[in-house]
Structure formats: structure tokens, C-alpha cells
Design a protein around this nucleic acid. Structure first.
Length: 359
DNA sequence: AAACCGGGGCC
DNA sequence: GGCCCAGGTTT
């Protein structure tokens, strides 16, 4: 650490600012470690404003760890619908079950024990320990790395796993032992509202005088991050297929991988240079004949690592006796479909169906 | 160490 | 269109 850094004054400036400016968020009105846990999982890679309504619904439905431990996965996924990263909620339930069964329903208070729980990595362990139990543990996320990389002009590439150790140690050295909970939340709050990626509000920053990058006029040079991921483009051909009774054929995705266990309209995918007919592909896959109807307006869905161009068609199964219903391939009525967890690109189609029926 | 895993907001 | 977000797990 550079010699001119005044740790005590830094903590004081930061905590005074936080006490005055902190946002009133639902999970800041509790120190219940289970509620903090839920909020931290939801906040992974997800913005505060998005999380708030999901958090309130989730806590209302599952006010205790015991109630969550007993929940059906389908209901969990439905509550999580639209948040993304659906394995988060399954891991959360697994972790909560471990606490109920092996820790007497008391969230453990050591990094070693809490880190052993499913879905709790180094960041979430530190966040729960500090926020709920007021222990001086580091909780380093993207915000913290950005703030500290500017405070100390850290030249290391934050996309490299090895670099994280530098930030863990810096936070451990500088964290307030009088109020670790507020300290960690204050750093994250600072990163969220002041020390932002593109437009840092340095003139409003409570720790401006402690910031090496500000002194050098280089905040935008930090954090150092490189490494691009190129997105794969795929054409998706979903078929909205009804049987003779007007029910819709839905398919449940595999239990692992992209959008695990979510429901979808059966689709085939095709690389752009492939010329095979999607309808024939699906007929072969389902071993049935399809009478196609109309096509929907094509639309896109962007994942961080994948770019879907979606060309949907509706139609009918010529003879629904061809389809042997299974746990992962069934006909549903509209009302039944409303209870199925569907990812956003699937909901786009479902909403079109609902609108068409009303008209 | 690198790949995988959603979705939305912002510039 | 690219980047970012209160990351963790798997390979």
C-alpha cells in the first residue's frame, strides 16, 4: 500500500458519506442472515432496481429457511422467472437445506463453513458475514475491484483470477473493524452511484482526496481489463404446435446447461449456412407430421455469450397420437402454461399467443 | 485458467 | 453494438 494513504480518515470519510447518502433498500432494513443471503444471490450480475420486486415477492412467499427448503423447484423457477442465471435459485435452495439440516437453521458464522454451502463463493461468503454478522471479512465484487483499482491504481488485469487476491488483501487491510457491515456496503454503494465505470462522479466523491487515480487524472484507465468473448450466432426455429383439442405442445429443457429445466416451445436450431428445412427436422425429431400455419415476426434474443435470431411458426400436429407424452414433453392448456417457468425469449411467444386469443 | 450461465440498462 | 452489473460452478 502506498505510504500516503490515511486509512482512518478514508474509513471516516467513506462511512460518513454512506450514512448520509445510502439508498433505502429492502434488505438494508434487516440483519436476518437468510434475507441477506437471498438478496446477495439475487444481486449477482443483476441490478438493484431489477432485484427489488423479486426480493419482496420471494421473502413474502418464503419467509423462513424451512419454508424454502420444502418448496418445489417449479415454483422456485417461476418466482425467479426473468431474473436469469436460474441455477442461482436451485443452488440457494440446496444451500438452505444444508443449513436447516446440518446447522440447526442457523447460517454459519465462519468463512470456511459458509463457503461450503452451495452457491456461496468468496464474495457472497464475505457479504453475508460482514453485513449480517458485522464481521471484518472482505467481499470483493466488480464494484469493489473498480473502486480499489482506482484508489490504488492497480495495474493488474481484473479478468485474471489471480488478481482477485490483491483486492482481497487490500480490503482486509483497509476495512473498518468498528463497522464492517457499513464499510463493505459503502464501497459497493460508492461503486454503484459515484465510482461508476464510464462516468465516475469524482467531483462528488467522498474519498476523492484518497484516490491515486484521481490525483493522476486517470480514473477511466481503471480497472485494467482485457479479453474479449465473441458471441456465437444461431438461428432458432420454434414451433407453436396445437393438438386436436387446441392444447399446446411444450418441452422441458435438460436439467443442466442453458436455461436448465425451463419450458419452451419445441425448436430446432440451424447454423446460418445450413439449408435443411426446420419443419422436416422437427418432424423427424418428434416422429410426427406438422401442418404449418403462420410465421411470427422474427425477433432476437441476446445472451452474453450467444445471439439468437428467432423465426417462429405456428401449426398443428396432424395426429397427436404420434406424440407420446412424457415428463419433459407434454400438451398444455393456456391456463396450465401460465404456471410453467419460461425464459424471456419463450415468454415473447407465449404473450403473442395470449394476445391473439383475446382478440 | 477458461468456459459456461440470462437479462436488462446504458452509452 | 459493446460494456457492465452486489459471481459461482464446472471442466
Amino acid at each position: 500500500m502506498r505510504q500516503t494513504f490515511d486509512k482512518e480518515q478514508f474509513q471516516k470519510d467513506l462511512l460518513q458519506w454512506y450514512e448520509k447518502e445510502k439508498r433505502d433498500l429492502p434488505w438494508r432494513r434487516t440483519s436476518n442472515p437468510y434475507y441477506i443471503w437471498v438478496s446477495e444471490i439475487m444481486l449477482q450480475q443483476t441490478r438493484v432496481d431489477t432485484v427489488i420486486p423479486y426480493y419482496l415477492k420471494f421473502i413474502e412467499r418464503f419467509p423462513t429457511m424451512e419454508s424454502l427448503a420444502e418448496a418445489d423447484e417449479e415454483e422456485l423457477l417461476k418466482l425467479w422467472e426473468g431474473l436469469g442465471y436460474y441455477s442461482r435459485v436451485r443452488n440457494l435452495q440446496i444451500g438452505v437445506r444444508e443449513v436447516v439440516e446440518h446447522y440447526g437453521s442457523e447460517v454459519p458464522k465462519t468463512r470456511k463453513e459458509i463457503s461450503s454451502l452451495k452457491g456461496i463463493g468468496p464474495y457472497t461468503a464475505g457479504a453475508i458475514l460482514s453485513i449480517a454478522y458485522n464481521l471484518p471479512e472482505h467481499a470483493v465484487d466488480g464494484n469493489v475491484m473498480r473502486v480499489y483499482s482506482r484508489l490504488f491504481e492497480i495495474p493488474d488485469d481484473i479478468s485474471k483470477p489471480k488478481t482477485k487476491k490483491i483486492f482481497d488483501e487490500l480490503v482486509t487491510k483497509t476495512i473498518s473493524h468498528e463497522d464492517p457491515s457499513s464499510f463493505n456496503q459503502a464501497i459497493m454503494e460508492l461503486g454503484a452511484v459515484v465510482c461508476t465505470p464510464r462516468n465516475p462522479h469524482c467531483l462528488l466523491c467522498p474519498v476523492q482526496e484518497h484516490c491515486a487515480a484521481y490525483a493522476s487524472g486517470t480514473p477511466l484507465d481503471y480497472p485494467v481489463k482485457k479479453g474479449k468473448t465473441k458471441v456465437r450466432k444461431v438461428d432458432i426455429f420454434p414451433f407453436v404446435l396445437q393438438d386436436e383439442q387446441g392444447r399446446y405442445l411444450m418441452r422441458k429443457r435438460p436439467s443442466e446447461g442453458l436455461l436448465a429445466n425451463m419450458w419452451e416451445f419445441p425448436y430446432v436450431e440451424r447454423a446460418s449456412e445450413d439449408l435443411t428445412d426446420p419443419q422436416q427436422q422437427l418432424e423427424k425429431q418428434l416422429n410426427t407430421k406438422i401442418k404449418v400455419g403462420q410465421t411470427y415476426e422474427p425477433y432476437k434474443h441476446i445472451f452474453s455469450h450467444l445471439h439468437w435470431n428467432i423465426y417462429a411458426t405456428n401449426g398443428r400436429i396432424v395426429d397427436s397420437n404420434d406424440i407420446k407424452e412424457t415428463a419433459t414433453m407434454k400438451f398444455f392448456t393456456i391456463e396450465e402454461m401460465k404456471a410453467l417457468p419460461m425464459a424471456v425469449p419463450v415468454q415473447v411467444l407465449f404473450k403473442q399467443i395470449l394476445n391473439h386469443i383475446i382478440l
